[in-house]
């Protein structure tokens, strides 16, 4: 009973934060409130006994991504650009709310078909999950089943995830840090020289064609 009440309170808080994020135009406030949103979700995960997920959500969602967003915010103006006042604002809002209500209603309708929370006969708990739960403690002597599933039973997936993180880091470095490299005077000079020579060559070629 208390668990349900805590859940209701946290869900209400999530909706409140989401509405506040929508209503404010200041990017700084939006970023800080998204951090609060992540922290509230982490609390919900704790209430659902998913401590590992909660830990990740608190560390990544509320911690690092807030800092990264703040660092990225300095690219942008502090205020959101005001929406252009046109005649279709009201009808656009109407269409958006209808779409939201219909999509949300469909999701709630679909959720009615889901098995109850923690139902041992749910399909997800019938396939390999019982084996993992039994083996992890007794056979492998690793009490945290999440870790055994993540690193051992599903080791290939985690290898893929690590490569995804690595690739994402490489991508950002190529986009952002690559731009800072040309800033060095000698490098900038050499590129300028190479472009100068290439244009000179191009001109020479053009001249030859003429």
């Amino acid at each position: 009973m208390t668990s349900i009440m805590i859940d209701m309170f946290l869900l209400g808080l999530l909706v409140f934060i989401a509405v506040m994020i929508l209503r404010t135009g200041k990017l700084f406030a939006v970023i800080v409130m998204s951090g609060g949103y992540s922290l509230t979700s982490a609390a919900i995960f704790v209430n659902l006994d998913a401590v590992d997920v909660a830990f990740t959500e608190a560390a990544v969602g509320a911690g690092i991504s807030t800092v990264l967003f703040l660092a990225a915010m300095s690219f942008l103006p502090a205020e959101e650009k005001a929406a252009s006042k046109s005649d279709s604002t009201f009808s656009r809002t109407l269409i958006a709310s209808i779409v939201c209500v219909v999509a949300g209603g469909l999701l709630v309708f679909a959720a009615l078909d889901l098995p109850a929370f923690g139902d041992p006969n749910a399909p997800a708990h019938m396939h390999v999950a019982p084996r993992y739960l039994e083996e992890s403690g007794t056979l492998l002597h690793i009490p945290n089943v999440v870790t055994t599933v993540l690193a051992s039973y599903r080791g290939f997936d985690t290898l893929g995830e690590t490569i995804v993180v690595f690739t994402a880091g490489l991508g950002v470095l190529m986009l952002l840090a690559g731009a800072t490299r040309t800033r060095r005077p000698d490098a900038a000079q050499s590129t300028a020289q190479s472009t100068a020579t290439s244009t000179a060559r191009g001109k020479a070629k053009k001249g030859a064609a003429k």
Partner: peptide, 30 residues
């Protein structure tokens, strides 16, 4: 299993640490 999991988690930790740091340095440094 113990040795394998510890090594694999170490690899994940090392990559995630340096990628997060690289992201921060890239954004703030840019």
């Amino acid at each position: 299993q113990h040795i394998g999991i510890i090594l694999v988690e170490l690899g994940v930790g090392v990559t995630v640490t340096s990628v997060m740091l690289a992201l921060f340095h890239a954004f703030a440094g840019f």
